[in-house]
Design a protein around this nucleic acid. Structure first.
Lengths: 241, 241
DNA sequence: CACGTTAGCGCACGCTGTACGCACCTTGCG
DNA sequence: CGCAAGGTGCGTACAGCGTGCGCTAACGTG
C-alpha cells in the first residue's frame, strides 16, 4: 500500500470544508455545562470537552483564554437561569424573595459542581447574568422598603443563607452521585458508620433518627424552607419598628 | 573514574540511617495546612508537600490513602480550631452562639482554601473534630430552649448563613491574595471596571459607593454582624410565642 | 541472630493545561 | 479574477500532576 504520499493531504483524509466559526464561545460554554452536569467538576478537561465538540483541545483556546476563564463564563451562564420576579406590590415582597431564593437553590442543585467553583471564582461576579440577577434581587428588597444603606446588607444576608445551605446540599448530593446509589440507599448504608461515630455525641443522633423513615429529599426541602422563613422573619422585623 | 560500581549503595550516597516513623500522619496534615495557608489550594501537590517534609511524594501514601483523604483530614483538623463555649445559663444562649459563629468565620478567613474544599468534600463531616464542634453548637441551641425536633433545623440555618458568608469572603480574599495587592489597593483598582459594569444596574452601585472611604475590612465585619443578628432575631422569635 | 513486617523511595504511566507555529479557509481589495 | 491579510483549527511538545508497582533496608519480635 504505497499511500504514504502526503498522508495529511490525502483526498480521503482531507477534512470537509468547514465553514467559519464552526466553534463559538456559546457552544463551548453550553457543552461544558452539559459535561459538568453529567460527570462532575473533576471530569472536565479541555481535551474531553474538545472531543465532545468534535475538535482538538487546543482549538478551544481561540475562544477562551484559559480554563479558569471558561469556568467564569460557565458560572455566569448558570446565573442566567433563576427567575427573579419584579415586585409590583411592596407588601408582597416576601413572596417574591422566597421565590427567588427557591430558584437559586434549584439552580445550585441542578448544577452541584457550581458550589466549589463559587468558592474558587468568588461569589461576587461582574458577569452580566450575575449582575442582572443581583440587581433584580436588590430591587425586591428596595420595594420591600429597606433603607438604602441597609438594602445591601439584607441581600447579602439572604444570599449567604441560600448559597450556604445549597452548597451543603450540593456537596452531599454529588457525594452520593459519585457512589452511584440513590439518596435513600446511601443514607441507609451510611447509618451504621454514623451511629458508631455519634456514640459520644448522642445529641447529633437524636434529630436524624427521629425522622428515619421520612424521604430524605423531603427533609432537605423542609430544612431549607424553615431556615428561609427564619431569615426572612429576622429581616422583616427591621421594616416594622 | 571507575566508580560505576553500585552507585546506589556507594558509601557516600548511602542515606543516613533514619529512625522508624520519621513521617507521621499528623506531620503531613500540619505541613499541608501550612502549605495551603501560604500558597493556596491549587499549589498543593503531593510532590511539593513531600519535598517540604524532606521525603519523596510517594512516601506520603503510606500514611494517607490518597489526596482526597488528605484533604478530608486537613479539613477536619481545621474544624478543631473554633472555640465553642458551653452554655450554663440558658438566657445567655445568644451570646454563646454569636461567639461560635464569629469563631467559625474567623476559621474560614484564616484558611480561605477551606471554602472550595467544603464544596467538594461535603459540609457534613464524620471527622471527630467536626462532630465535636457540631455537637457543642447543638448543645447551645438545646440550652436556648429549642424543641428537640427544631434544634437541628435551627443549627443548620445558622451554619448555612455563617458558611455562606464566610465562603464569599474567603473567595474574595484569596482572589486578592493571588493578585498580590492589599485589599484597599485591589478595591480601588477594580472600581473603574465595576462602575463600567454597573452602568445598567445603578442599584448595585448605590450601596458600595456610599461607603467608598470606609476600610473594606470594617465593612465586611459589619455585614457579617448585621446578618448574624437578623438570623438570630428570626430564630429567637421561635422561642417566645 | 534470623525472620517477617513495613516505611521510604525510584521509576513509570497516563493524564492534565496550555504555548507555539504551521496549514488552511474566508474575506477585502485592487 | 487574483492576491494579500487575518483569523481558525490543530499537531506537537513540555512541564507538572496523582499514584501503582516493586525494591531496599530498618525495625520489632521470637
Amino acid at each position: 500500500m504505497p499511500n504514504d504520499e502526503k498522508p495529511t493531504t490525502s483526498v480521503w483524509t482531507r477534512p470537509r470544508p468547514r465553514q467559519r466559526e464552526h466553534l463559538t464561545r456559546e457552544q463551548i460554554v453550553a457543552e461544558a455545562i452539559r459535561l459538568l452536569d453529567a460527570e462532575g467538576v473533576e471530569e472536565l478537561s479541555m481535551r474531553k470537552l474538545g472531543t465532545r465538540l468534535g475538535t482538538a483541545a487546543t482549538s478551544l483556546y481561540r475562544h477562551v483564554a484559559n480554563k479558569d476563564e471558561l469556568i467564569e463564563l460557565v458560572v455566569d451562564d448558570v446565573y442566567g437561569e433563576p427567575d427573579v420576579p419584579t415586585v409590583v406590590d411592596g407588601t408582597r415582597w416576601r413572596a417574591a424573595v422566597t421565590h427567588t431564593a427557591t430558584e437559586l437553590r434549584a439552580m445550585t442543585l441542578r448544577h452541584p459542581w457550581i458550589a466549589p467553583a463559587l468558592g474558587q471564582v468568588g461569589l461576587v461576579h461582574i458577569g452580566p447574568n450575575a449582575m442582572r440577577m443581583s440587581s433584580a434581587l436588590l430591587a425586591q428588597f428596595e420595594a420591600a422598603g429597606f433603607p438604602a444603606d441597609e438594602m445591601d446588607q439584607a441581600m447579602a444576608t439572604l444570599m449567604a443563607y441560600v448559597i450556604g445551605i445549597a452548597t451543603a446540599e450540593a456537596a452531599y448530593l454529588s457525594l452520593i452521585a459519585r457512589s452511584g446509589q440513590t439518596e435513600q440507599e446511601w443514607v441507609a448504608g451510611l447509618r451504621p458508620a454514623f451511629d458508631e461515630a455519634t456514640r459520644e455525641h448522642p445529641r447529633l443522633r437524636a434529630g436524624s433518627s427521629a425522622q428515619q423513615d421520612v424521604h430524605p429529599q423531603r427533609i432537605r426541602d423542609d430544612n431549607f424552607a424553615y431556615g428561609l422563613d427564619r431569615v426572612l422573619d429576622g429581616l422583616a422585623a427591621r421594616l416594622t419598628p
